[in-house]
Computed example of a mutant assay.
Amino acid sequence: MSGGVDSAVAAARAVEAGHEVVGVHLALSRMPGTLRTGSRGCCTVEDSMDAQRAANIIGIPYYVWDFSARFKVDVVDDFVAEYAAGRTPNPCMRCNEKIKFAALLEKAIDLGFDAVVTGHYASIATDAEGNKELHRAADWAKDQSYVLGVLTADQINHSMFPLGATPSKAEVRAEAAERGFSVANKPDSYDICFIPDGDTRGWLGERVAPEAGDILDREGNKLGEHAGAVAFTVGQRKGLSIGTPASDGKPRFVLEVRPISNTVVVGPKEALAVKEIAGDFYTWAGLAPTTPEVAFDCHVQIRAHADPVPAIAQVVRDADRVELKIIPAEPLTGVAPGQTAVVYLGTRVLGQCTIDRTVSAVPVSAVPDGAVASEATPGSGA
């Protein structure tokens, strides 16, 4: 129970469905005095008290479990390390993968519970053979199946999402008000929970020593300098501070972040187009394809609120690596290494991979650092 309206209603529905329910709030911050500011942040003291009030109304036991040490290692430290490596991580994916449906579920199973219930907007269905599948929620506008794409078959078997079939968030808020929950109109949290002020660059600057470097165009010409490459991400337009205008007068965007040479590569918006993505860390959400090495039709989604795009995917094996390769029907824009690509079959979540290789859809005459134009470059976003 995060202290929000969704988890409170999910807990109440689980009780009414006949389950024996215990409310658990995860203490993830090592600063117990932290207070929420509007819709920024979560897992604060205020959130814990909101969760307890909801549990009291429902009439279920309530506990606070301290997972702050594991959260720091698996989510916060991973976030810093990924940015330092020139990648753009998704901490919500890591939290679901390592904390809510791993550490929390493991402890719950050890204590004799059958499942973890959350307020995520997603659904679980059972196929003709009895296998459980993860699907999108009924309300696609609030669908959160993307951030659950990291769940494995075993985790799905021990998960419940009571809000999945709810037509809208407005209906959940109305139900919360009817139940007397004080969180009925509480704002949804957004941004990164451990950076509540939203200043990712400033937060990272306190943890990764900034080092000045060059800003280059795709041909390797120096356009300017940056104060530290760690906070740049592929697709970024603002904050480049390039004095020299582009020849066509159009704005430039970050195409690559190269931590080894400490350079940032920029170029026109058209150069953000990517025709192929791949990752060697991939998992299947439920039953895996029978022959994943054979190319299959699917849809791919690369951000939580992005539209799914028709694509072809397959597992490719060679002497050096085994990876999930995805070729969209049309080029994707602004794909950054470290992002997660979630693969769908209709409404079903089939699996995911962390993107570590992309292929540009726009050839260039020369690319610095020894790469060849239009070829796959591990860790490259252009």
Results as ranks from 00 to 15, higher is better:
3 G>P: 09
4 G>N: 02
7 S>A: 08
10 A>P: 01
10 A>H: 03
11 A>S: 12
19 H>N: 14
26 L>Q: 12
27 A>M: 10
33 G>L: 09
36 R>H: 05
37 T>L: 06
40 R>Q: 13
41 G>P: 01
44 T>E: 00
47 D>H: 05
50 D>C: 07
50 D>F: 04
54 A>T: 13
64 V>F: 01
66 D>G: 01
70 R>F: 07
72 K>G: 13
72 K>L: 11
77 D>H: 07
79 F>E: 05
82 E>T: 08
85 A>Y: 01
97 E>K: 09
105 L>E: 06
106 E>A: 12
107 K>D: 15
108 A>P: 03
109 I>M: 05
118 T>Q: 08
120 H>K: 06
120 H>C: 01
124 I>L: 08
127 D>M: 10
127 D>L: 05
132 K>T: 09
134 L>D: 12
135 H>M: 06
137 A>Y: 05
137 A>W: 00
140 W>N: 12
142 K>I: 07
148 L>S: 07
148 L>V: 07
149 G>V: 05
155 Q>D: 03
155 Q>L: 02
158 H>T: 04
160 M>E: 05
160 M>Y: 07
161 F>S: 00
165 A>H: 14
165 A>F: 02
166 T>I: 09
166 T>K: 06
167 P>T: 00
168 S>N: 01
171 E>H: 09
172 V>N: 00
177 A>D: 11
180 G>W: 05
185 N>C: 13
188 D>W: 04
190 Y>T: 11
192 I>G: 09
196 P>I: 11
198 G>P: 13
199 D>L: 08
201 R>Q: 12
202 G>V: 11
209 A>L: 12
212 A>N: 13
225 E>C: 10
225 E>S: 14
226 H>S: 05
229 A>D: 15
231 A>Y: 09
243 G>E: 13
243 G>Y: 06
246 A>G: 10
247 S>D: 15
251 P>H: 08
253 F>Y: 15
254 V>L: 02
254 V>W: 04
257 V>F: 02
265 V>D: 11
266 V>F: 07
270 E>R: 14
270 E>M: 15
271 A>C: 11
271 A>S: 15
272 L>W: 05
278 A>T: 11
281 F>V: 15
282 Y>K: 08
290 T>S: 08
291 T>G: 10
300 V>D: 03
301 Q>R: 14
301 Q>L: 09
302 I>F: 10
309 V>K: 11
315 V>W: 04
317 R>H: 14
322 V>Q: 14
333 T>L: 13
336 A>H: 00
336 A>S: 08
339 Q>C: 03
340 T>I: 09
342 V>P: 00
343 V>R: 03
344 Y>F: 07
350 L>G: 00
355 I>E: 01
356 D>F: 03
359 V>D: 04
361 A>Y: 01
369 D>G: 10
378 P>M: 02
